[in-house]
Write a protein that binds this DNA or RNA. Structure first.
Lengths: 349, 349
DNA sequence: CTGAAAGCGCTAACAC
DNA sequence: GTGTTAGCGCTTTCAG
């Protein structure tokens, strides 16, 4: 038996002695086919291994069941976790995914990216790149010819734009409340790069928490990092010099917090007795740092999932209330504080 | 001015007063268009924001410039790094990517996955899921109707199958040579889950290295983990009990090595003096462990890139030697040993 | 219940 | 140089 190339609907129809429409009806489970015909056609379909062309179907239906996803920094675990949530939810809803990874986070030239998705007839686009620098600027003068529904992740909520994000400010407040509860009063901060919206939110939480507790905030009490452990190492050096009374550090992510632990160890400062440490993200290694790291768990996977759910609500009308799409409410997920050894001054004897 | 939906080629042709064919020629930079016509059409194209449909084009050309990518475990940094290499190389070569993430590593039911890609007319499929359990079994009875070129990552090389992988065995040998050079003689091993090909390779390297140095290998000298730090913690507990003379550990990845460091610290064993530690993967945190971790750097990003390059060689004939596609040579990338504090017994005074 | 015709948006092949 | 015709593989519409 000779194997041919992928059969098309015509060949199936020919083999079954019916018209292509009938094959189409069988493929789409339409009721108006007689049982005998249906069975005969189905057998042929099985024998030939017929698989309809999603392309041809998308073309005629003006509906591709495909979503475009724009991401950046996949070599970092955060974006990868989010993407994983997106793939899982998309699978669940029966959508295929077109993936594009930007070479940098602060790409402002978005037209070619959207055009690629549009040219593939994507039903929607999930913009999974966090707000950095002016990479949301283009939303003020959106290219008029872009008729694709979009959902944005991790950005300052705006009118009429569907946004899904972790509540970074709230997460930061949780970290700070915990440190203050534990009796720390001289809390330094290692921020992320401040052109990142998330970094600004986390820093604002640090600052507000101190001020609300009538603790002075000075410029020398914080240093800007760039998310990397290496930058954290430099930052903590500076902080130790600038802020000798410092008895705790809120680091804007776990990688930088790891450097704080290392630096404290090298200077024979005990954690949590001499220096309390709290991170952000809850990377999978943080329970195994020495000591284990207290951190704010951000559900990036869930952010990805919810982005897809929001998208489905928009592009599949008639499922839920349609009035919601008129007033898209930003979704801000509340993080969780995961308390471990690095901040437990109270319980240490 | 009213904004219409995405214009098609017919509308452009009408507006420019030419045939669709001419518009097509302009879009594809064909030479046989007069300069004036070209300019006029191009203006209309710009004004209308015309973007040709990749779908229609794929349908007629029988070529989609789209690759399918199958991955798994994106929440782990390894697969994410590989995917990043794939996205970057695909971008470079002008290919779009359809992404599918498997819910588990050991999925054996591959037909629906391939069919989805085929139905989207993918020009090729990159199988970026590592060999685990019998998830390569289906290659023995490949579904005959799957005419898609494929490239596989991270598996035992086989005849006539294009494979790109890190050389895990060689990496393991490098780790072991280094430990032996440093004078360690009682080297335990925490392996990955042994249904993983990579875990078996790394373990074999451990075993062979010891035997070639006339060091006895006992069952009690190694424990199986599951890649996670938690499993590493359990494993190292066991090893300390089973193998009291142990003076070094080769852990099959950095996460498990981290647990070794933590456990040593808790037992007041000094690293590297009492216990040498070497990991595998070189995750971004490992330079900041206490002490910094010696590890085998595996270029997963490069694996992803090369997979795309191999695929292009296969589906774009006439670029290089075609005879290569007849005898696809497995590509095994040599890892690098990154020496840090955790294994430097010699240099410690 | 089933089939014929038309067309989604594009390009290959051929005419002029 | 440019236009016409045909068709990629499918579904919608309408006829029977």
């Amino acid at each position: 038996m000779i194997k041919h190339k992928r059969p098309n609907i015509k060949q199936v129809a020919l083999a079954a002695g019916v018209s292509t429409q009938t094959v189409s009806r069988v493929m789409n489970d339409r009721p108006d086919v007689s049982p005998e015909t249906r069975e005969r056609v189905q057998k042929i379909i099985g024998d030939l291994g017929y698989q309809p062309s999603a392309l041809a179907r998308s073309l005629i239906q003006q509906r591709s069941y495909t979503l475009g996803v724009v991401t950046a920094g996949l070599k970092y675990i955060g974006p990868a976790r989010t993407l994983s949530g997106i793939t899982n939810a998309a699978e669940e809803f029966g959508y295929s995914l077109l993936l594009k990874e930007l070479p940098r986070f602060d790409v402002t030239h978005v037209l070619p990216i959207l055009q690629e998705f549009i040219s593939h007839h994507a039903d929607g686009v999930i913009w999974a790149v966090p707000e950095v620098g002016d990479n949301r600027e283009w939303l003020n003068q959106p290219p008029a010819d872009l008729e694709v529904p979009m959902v944005f992740l991790t950005m300052q909520p705006r009118e009429n734009i569907p946004v899904v994000s972790i509540d970074n400010y709230q997460g930061g407040r949780m970290a700070m409340s915990h440190l203050l509860d534990q009796g720390y009063r001289h809390i330094g901060h290692i921020s992320g790069p401040l052109d990142w919206w998330e970094a600004r939110q986390r820093k604002a939480a640090w600052q507000d928490a101190l001020q609300e507790n009538n603790i002075e905030v000075r410029e020398s009490y914080w240093v800007e990092g760039n998310w990397s452990s290496a930058s954290g190492a430099q930052a903590i050096e500076k902080l130790f010099q600038q802020y000798p009374e410092m008895d705790a550090v809120f680091a804007a992510n776990d990688q930088m917090a790891l450097s704080v632990i290392q630096a404290a160890y090298q200077r024979n400062k005990r954690i949590p007795q001499d220096i309390g440490v709290v991170g952000f993200d809850n990377i999978s290694e943080s329970p195994f740092f020495c000591p284990a790291l207290t951190t704010v768990q951000s559900e990036q996977y869930t952010v990805g999932r919810m982005a897809v759910e929001e998208m489905i609500k928009i592009i599949e009308p008639g499922k839920k209330q349609e009035q919601e799409s008129d007033h898209p409410t930003p979704i801000m997920l509340t993080p969780t504080l995961v308390v471990r050894q690095s901040s437990l001054k109270q319980q240490v004897h």
